[in-house]
Every structure is written in C-alpha cells, then in structure tokens.
Design a protein around this nucleic acid. Structure first.
Lengths: 338, 338
DNA sequence: CTTACTTACCAAAGCGTTTTGGGTTATCAT
DNA sequence: ATGATAACCCAAAACGCTTTGGTAAGTAAG
C-alpha cells in the first residue's frame, strides 16, 4: 500500500494525500479527515526510505559505542539507549548503533556522516579534552554530547550537575561533624570525574575544611581499584572519618574492603557513593548516595534535545540541559566520632 | 559528490559508473579501474538511502531489546551487539536498535517491518515457547534467533550447545568421584536454562548417577536468588558434594553464600559455574567453568549468518550454527570426599 | 462585472541510486 | 563482404515520497 495506491483509492492526487497526512494547510478539513481515515483503515505507512531520500534527511541518529579492550560494557549505557530509542520513536527517528575501538572512532563518524546515514550523533563518555567533539564541531556535523567537555559553551549537551552533587555530599558529611573526609575518584580525564572532583574541593572549601592530599585517591572504574583505594586509605596512620566515592563501580569495591576489615559503615566510618550500590550485591545496608535521574529519563531528555537540534532554530540555551542530582539518605553515614 | 557528478567528471554515463562500482561484468577492466580510482580520489560514497530505495532493501537489520521492569540490562548483550555491528559493517549493513517492553514488542516488530526500515530481525533472549518467533515466522519476516526455541527446525538461529556443556560439567565432577551433585538453574522458560537442565539430566544418566530432586533448585537470574538457592542447599540434612550453577549471575550469589558459611570451594565442596564469575568480584579462586566463545565472536558469527540469510539461496543448514562450549578448569572443584 | 485574493487541489520535477532493454563498435568465422 | 557474436556502453524508467509552481473555482472588494 503506497501513496499512489491510497490516492487512487480516494480519487485524489498523491500530492494532496501527502499534504493531508503531513498537516499542510492547503487541504480542506473534510478531505484531510477522509484521507486520514482511509490511511488508517488500509494500514498505510509511508516508506521511510523514500521519505528520507525526498527530504534529504536520514531520520536517524547515530551513536557509536566505544569498546575498549577490557573495559567491561556498562549496563547503564544500554538503559540510556533504551530511553533514547523510546523518545526518538515518538519523533519518528531511528537509532543507529555503531561500535568502534577508540582509535577507529573518528573513522566511523566519517563514514556515517559522509554516507548520510544519520542526521546527527550522540557522543557518549565524554572526556575533558575530547577530540571527537573537536572533530564533529569542525566538520559541521550536528551532535549532542552526553556529558560536557572542558569547553562546552558552543555545542549542545546533556549533563548532570556533577559539581553540585559533590557539594551536596560534602555538606551532608560536614553537617554530621566530619572534618576529615577522604575522596576516591576515577581518572580526571573523564569529565564527570573532573566535575565531581572540583565539586568536592569546592564543598570542602565552603565548609571550611582542609583537603588532605593523602586522602585524595585516584581509582579506576572497576571494583578492584575501588577496593585497593579504600584499603590504601585504611592502611594510613591517620584515617579519614568519612569517604566519598565518585562512581559506584569503585564504590562496590570500597564497600567490600570495609566489610573485609570488619569496619561498620555509619558507625566506624561514613560512606557516600555516587549512584549508590547496585541492589544485587547482597549488601544489607543502604548506602547514602548522590543520585541522578534514571537512565531512562535521561534517554528521553536526550531525545528531546535531539529533536530540537534537528528542527533547528533553537537557541543554544535550549539545547543544553543540566540535571540536578539529589542526595538520598541511607544508613552508611552518621555523626563524626568524638 | 554524487554518481552523476562522478560520471560527468569521467565522461561516462551514470549507468556505467554504477555498474563499474558494483562489479558488473559488462564494463571493461580499464574503465572500471578508471572509475574506481576517480571514486577513491574524489571521495565518492554512494548515498545509502537512494540505494535502499532503488534496491528495495533497507540494508539494516533490527534488534529489539526487551526491557523488563527491574531486570537489569545485561552487559553481555551490549558486547554481542558490538560484535554484531562490526560484522555487519563489513557487509555494509546497519544495526537499528529499538527497545520495547515485553508486551509492546510485537507492535515494534510490526512497525519496523511494515515501515520497511529493516530487512530482518535478530530475536534475543529466546524462550522455549516464543511468540515473537511464531509471529515473525507466520508474518514471513526474515529473522535470526539468538538461541533456539523448543521447535527450532524451521528457522535460522545461532546458539550454544548448552546441553553438551552440562554433560561436560557433570562428566568432570563424576570423574572426580562425586556422586551427589546439586544443580541450580534459572527459569526453564529460557531456552538456555532448559537445554542446560536437560544436559544435566543426561550427564547424570550417562554417569550412572541418581538425580536427587531436593538438590535440583530453581533460582532466578540474579545474585540474590543464587545466594538463597545455595543457602537452601546447605541447610539440608544431606548436602551434595558438588554443585553446578547454570548462569553466572546466580553463580556469584551461590559463591558468596559459600564464603559466608566458611565453606571452602574445591575442598569442602566442588563448584562449577556456567560462564565463570566476573573477574571484578574480588574473588581469589578460579572457578571451574563451562565457557563459550566470547560475545564478540558470537556477534560476528551472527553477522555472517545474517548476511547469508539476506543473500538468500542458502539451505537452512547453513543458517543454523551451534557453538561448542569448553570446560575451563579452575580450583573450585576437587576430588569427592571419602 | 471586472479585479484581486483565497481556498483546494494537482501535474510534474526532483531526491540518488539500480535495472531494464536496447544500441554501437569491434571481432570473427563464413 | 556478411551476418553472428561479444564486449562495452548508455538513455530512460523505476523506487515512493516531498516540493514547486502552478490552475480552477469560489469569494470579496471596487
């Protein structure tokens, strides 16, 4: 059932049917209704390929998932993607998933852009200095960054207010009387780690607390490294009375280290972890956490930004979105000793 | 740079250029070379949308990821997907990712098929009785199942020989002198669980061992349920001397239960887990496991099957692929006591 | 009753490929 | 020389839609 067939069936021209379906004003209300009903009844669905060709738009956006060697795929990514597909579906767009090793990523962009397979990209896992963003900007390809890079004035992005999250966490601990606060973070090349780190420093400053460099530990994005970092912290002569961990993978390891040492969270030491601890780790305590909107909502927000971006005519301010995190109280923190 | 421009630049017709590029025999070697070189030099890339329209193919395959309420997205899925995209890239196809709740899944298929957005589907997370497969078969839509359903004669699939894997595991334990073997499995609605379960029974029969129904426990696909199942096993009057767990999520929980009880794997009890235990669980032992080809290779295999499927003309036998698992020895099993 | 404007419709020209169904030269045996 | 066969090449149609640039009828104003 194509346009022409539908038009013939209605004794109308293809033009009119097309315009009726696409909401043009030069078709009478009566005719439009007739067309819409017939389309419904006959199960007409426009061929998206023909549509794309005629309109010069792919009606699809691309996302390339960077696959590093042993960097285990993170489940949240998939959840964001699912929110994204759902949101895009509403504006009749598709999501094209490509994958590429880090070094091949730019080529992949090139191929997809050049081949007009997609109208825009989503750049995930943003780094502070991100060559992908530089490339896309310079190539004039529309894109939406999931996470800001260091210089984020000039392009559309979606991000969490990571800095505010850390400030929140520090304020909570300071309010409980803690003066010795440790911080375990991921590589500062990641924008989120950088921002959270900056927030930690600011929070400490605002609370009038000194930052002890020996309690500022870098870990990776893996449990093992969180475990080691926490162990390193515990082995020091002077321990902090509270610790913040900037990602939940390392958080799991850190918590595990405390369990192994028989240190009780909330009593012996206070712990706050970004994004909490996955529920199936068999942990009985509730970790006090900095939480963000669900991945699913995140995906939908990004879909909204994306459709604005492609519609054009929106000022940059409407193409940038900052989500505020919240502090979710648990029982892994408590008043400072003494 | 489109075909016509390239043709003009070469003083050839668009037809000839097209045919040269697509390997038709009615163009001279000399001309072909000239065309190929010019295309290369001028960076010509055919417009895939126009191509699709002309050929009546979308050059994309769809995969819909079922998102259940609390069923956390599994990381392996993403890895399979990445292998898939890589493999598809080589045959110039794209991967369209859609997501749907279980009940909306059929509608999603309908929309994508009807809208000719994809040429075929991949059906993931196959169940023993899978209505999606029934639907696609009956609708005449080409698809490739990732995992067989109960009746798998008539359609293309990729799967592991799950039954053989269990037989392998049982044989190993039997060889170590174990006569009392427990089995923890996921819901038998999942094809993989069903097959592994069948393999367990067969393996026991072949080893001449009795199957004790109180040691045959169903758990879910989560750590907590594996934990509970193992605890249930340990609390019985008569304990098995060895246990097989049919998936690694439950496996993590089961192992954790043993740790909590102070039971030493390989000495007090032997344990074999399908797909092993993720390396970042801070476990010092190596779990003896039934392992399968990496997700990445799996994805590439599926891409191969897919391109065969769409090329047409392949007998069903070449569209079905069964991968053999292997037993990877660790130190979580040992000779039976006594 | 013109003139001008509005409303409702449509024919035809794209969009960038592939495919069909010839053509035009050479080549070659007769 | 002549018809047949191959080897190359091409114009035009098709794919299913959107968009452009109209036309014809109805309406309002002069």
């Amino acid at each position: 059932m194509d346009l022409k067939a539908l038009a013939a069936h209605l004794n109308l021209s293809a033009t009119t049917v097309s315009r009726a379906l696409n909401g043009y004003s030069d078709v009478s209300a009566k005719t439009r209704q007739r067309v819409v009903e017939a389309a419904q009844a006959l199960g007409y669905q426009p061929n998206p390929v023909a549509r794309s060709l005629a309109m010069g738009r792919a009606n699809a956006i691309g996302i390339v998932y960077p696959l590093e060697a042993d960097d285990v795929a993170d489940p949240r990514f998939l959840q964001v993607v699912s929110g994204l597909t759902e949101g895009l579906m509403e504006v009749n767009m598709d999501l094209l998933l490509a994958s590429a090793t880090h070094k091949g990523e730019l080529d992949t962009y090139d191929r997809l852009v050049h081949g007009r397979r997609v109208d825009a990209f989503i750049v995930a896992r943003t780094l502070c200095q991100d060559e992908r963003i530089d490339y896309l900007q310079q190539a004039g390809v529309p894109f939406l960054a999931y996470g800001r890079s260091a210089d984020c004035q000039a392009y559309p992005w979606f991000d969490f207010d990571n800095e505010a999250g850390s400030v929140l966490a520090v304020a909570r601990l300071a309010g409980l009387g803690h003066r010795h606060i440790g911080y375990i973070h991921a590589s500062l090349h990641y924008n989120f780690a950088h921002q959270r780190h900056a927030g930690f420093l600011r929070g400490m400053a605002e609370a009038g607390l000194p930052v002890a460099s020996q309690w500022l530990l870098q870990a990776g994005l893996a449990r093992r490294s969180g475990y080691q970092a926490m162990m390193g912290l515990l082995d020091q002569d002077q321990r902090p009375s509270a610790v913040i961990v900037d990602n939940n993978l390392a958080g799991v390891g850190a918590v595990r280290a405390l369990l192994d040492r028989g240190i009780v969270m909330g009593r012996d030491i206070s712990v706050i972890v970004y994004d909490g601890i996955p529920p199936d780790t068999l942990l009985t305590q509730h970790i006090t956490s900095v939480v963000q909107p669900t991945q699913h909502r995140t995906g939908k927000h990004m879909a909204t930004l994306m459709s604005r971006l492609l519609a054009g005519g929106h000022p940059l301010s409407e193409l940038q979105m900052l989500c505020q995190p919240e502090l979710q109280a648990g029982d892994s923190d408590g008043p400072a000793p003494g």
